[in-house]
């Protein structure tokens, strides 16, 4: 790994502790910069620390270690600042504003940009609706009344309203039907084409490894394996632990 200026995101030796329990021990990862976006995935079992990792990078949790984003060291990451600088997180629980309309939810994604002086939220909204036509139909509906898949679309769309260069997704396929999951992953690939890099945390290792460029495997708070996604897909240890017994899994992406 070279100097941080060439990386979109570089995390060095990250430690996160809850009281005495170390949730992450010395985790390092990187996402390269490029004309097209990169999809980097972090897979691993439940409780390995995947959500903790994203939360710490975003600034929701205190951490020790170094986090470089877009060439700059963030000594104490803070959510507002990260959003302003081009990072956004779609959390596992989506955290939508259930009583507010789809359109209001999306518009609020542009809040920080608005405060920074950008007035392009209408254009961003059109782009999000183009990506998720189903949301356009339901724009006035209360977000809490949508289906699981639609809610996920609102969550992603809302994050996109901030025009991020790095989008972090925490378990986007969780609780969704296979057809919907396929749609979501198609969108993820589409985003990469538009230059948005994705840091994808997934339990569904098969789907994740099929779309990713690079992958990390995390177990009990530490990285145990990393490499090009296609290599990991064929690695016997990974196959045994994460790619399961189902020979009937559909090919995604």
């Amino acid at each position: 790994m070279n100097a941080s200026e060439e990386k979109l995101l570089e995390v060095r030796n990250l430690h996160v502790a809850y009281g005495k329990v170390e949730a992450l021990q010395g985790v390092s990862l990187a996402i390269a910069k490029g004309r097209m976006g990169q999809i980097v995935t972090v897979i691993g079992p439940n409780g390995a620390g995947k959500t903790t990792l994203l939360s710490a990078i975003m600034g929701l949790l205190p951490s020790r270690g170094e986090i470089f984003f877009a060439g700059e060291l963030e000594p104490v990451p803070e959510v507002g600042r990260m959003v302003r600088r081009g990072m956004n997180l779609v959390p596992e629980k989506r955290e939508l504003f259930a009583e507010m309309s789809v359109e209001d939810n999306l518009i609020l994604g542009a809040f920080q940009r608005y405060r920074q002086g950008y007035r392009d939220h209408d254009r961003s909204l059109r782009e999000v609706f183009a990506l998720f036509p189903r949301l356009l139909e339901r724009r006035r509906q209360r977000a809490g009344t949508l289906s699981g898949g639609e809610r996920q679309m609102v969550a992603i769309g809302r994050a996109l309203m901030a025009q991020p260069t790095l989008l972090m997704l925490d378990e986007p396929s969780l609780g969704l039907a296979p057809l919907v999951v396929r749609e979501i992953f198609r969108i993820i690939v589409e985003l990469r084409k538009r230059g948005v890099s994705i840091l994808l945390v997934e339990q569904n290792a098969r789907a994740a490894l099929q779309v990713a460029d690079y992958a990390y495997v995390i177990e009990t708070g530490g990285i145990v394996m990393e490499g090009q996604a296609e290599n990991l897909r064929n690695d016997p240890r990974v196959i045994e632990a994460y790619l399961g017994l189902g020979q009937h899994q559909e090919k995604l992406a």
Partner: peptide, 23 residues
């Protein structure tokens, strides 16, 4: 107004609002 909606959002879901940069 966007600021008004942001306040409502903070009342409805504090975590979600934080993620949007609504501190």
């Amino acid at each position: 107004t966007l600021h008004g909606k942001a306040l409502r959002a903070a009342a409805v879901n504090r975590t979600g609002a934080t993620l949007m940069g609504i501190s």
